[in-house]
């Protein structure tokens, strides 16, 4: 029996290095199943409840795809506006009801801490699929998986994170997890959107000395991975200031001339215009591969929390 069985996945901080490695190793084995080249009934008869109280495309579909590829079924709330939640039911009550209909709950909610609260009330495992501006641990795991799969390892890799590092949901937990796994880090952002001091301190506590920069050009030549996040228009009161700043962080072919040949460019998507479409056809682009990796990684997590990874000898 796996010690993972029955665990919630609420925050990447809940996962030890050993558990992260366990997820990444099993994700690798899931690739042919995620592609449909092999099939399995490892989660036959199991039910996943997809509770999305906020819009999502990739996360929701990839959880659904992951569960179906493993032979399980998915129930969901398509329109939270039409449910009892809209009538004022507490999340705690919704969760106590849904857990009696399912074996595992995937939750996206607009309020921070919602997944922790759900885990508190549910006896079934709860997987956080994003809570407000808080945690999104399966995104972090699929980012780690993409780096490891593309580069062979994470330790010693130089990861340059660029864009909105202050408010970007994925940026903080990714930076912490990368430090735990021994990557070198450079944070490139305009001053008002730089990585929060709290996260920088946590990265340092984990033994990594990150570089902070405001210009992208200087960071490109050393990078093994360029992780791009979106700079949101609403962070700037002045629209012309936004255009100026966003433009100076735009990734295009010209900027990548100085890059290592095997640099990979990642993005959690959706992108707006922070990566020029001309980059899509270069050997650097990995963001669509990254989006696909959501399926094998979420398959691995579902198998582990349901204690079914040994069912078919994966």
């Amino acid at each position: 029996m796996s010690d993972f069985k029955g665990s919630d996945v609420v925050s990447i901080r809940d996962l030890s290095k050993g558990r992260i490695e366990q997820v990444l190793a099993l994700s690798e084995k899931m690739i042919p199943y995620a592609r449909g080249e092999k099939s399995t009934k490892a989660l036959d008869g199991r039910i996943l409840a997809n509770l999305f109280f906020e819009p999502s495309t990739r996360t929701r579909l990839s959880f659904e795809s992951a569960m179906v590829r493993l032979g399980g079924r998915v129930i969901d709330v398509a329109y939270p506006a039409m449910t009892s939640v809209a009538k004022g039911e507490t999340l705690a009550d919704t969760i106590r009801m849904v857990e009696s209909y399912s074996d595992v709950i995937v939750l996206r909610h607009p309020h921070e801490g919602a997944a922790r609260l759900a885990a508190h009330f549910s006896t079934k495992p709860v997987i956080n699929a994003g809570d407000g501006a808080g945690q999104h641990p399966t995104q972090t795991l699929l980012d780690l998986f993409t780096i490891r799969r593309e580069k062979g390892k994470i330790e010693g890799m130089h990861i340059v994170m660029v864009g909105d590092l202050k408010y970007g949901r994925t940026a903080h937990s990714l930076a912490e997890a990368l430090s735990l796994l021994g990557a070198e880090l450079t944070f490139v952002a305009p001053q008002n959107l730089q990585m929060p001091r709290e996260t920088v301190k946590e990265v340092e506590r984990l033994g990594i000395k990150p570089k902070l920069a405001s210009k992208i050009d200087d960071a490109i030549p050393q990078a093994d991975v360029l992780y791009v996040t979106r700079i949101q228009r609403e962070r700037f009161p002045d629209p012309s200031e936004y255009l100026k700043v966003a433009g100076s962080y735009r990734i295009d072919k010209n900027l990548l001339r100085e890059a290592k040949k095997d640099l990979i460019v990642m993005h959690p998507l959706p992108r707006i215009d922070e990566i020029a479409p001309e980059v899509d056809n270069t050997p650097h682009a990995r963001y669509f591969q990254q989006a696909f990796n959501g399926v094998p990684v979420r398959m691995a997590i579902l198998l582990l929390v349901l204690g079914a990874e040994a069912n078919e000898g994966f």
Binding site: T90, A92, H111, G113, A114, R116, H120, D131
Partner: peptide, 15 residues
């Protein structure tokens, strides 16, 4: 109480 107005504990949840 939590200072984050968007924290779930600041809603009418039984916690």
């Amino acid at each position: 109480r939590c200072g984050n107005p968007n924290c779930i504990t600041n809603l009418a949840e039984p916690v």
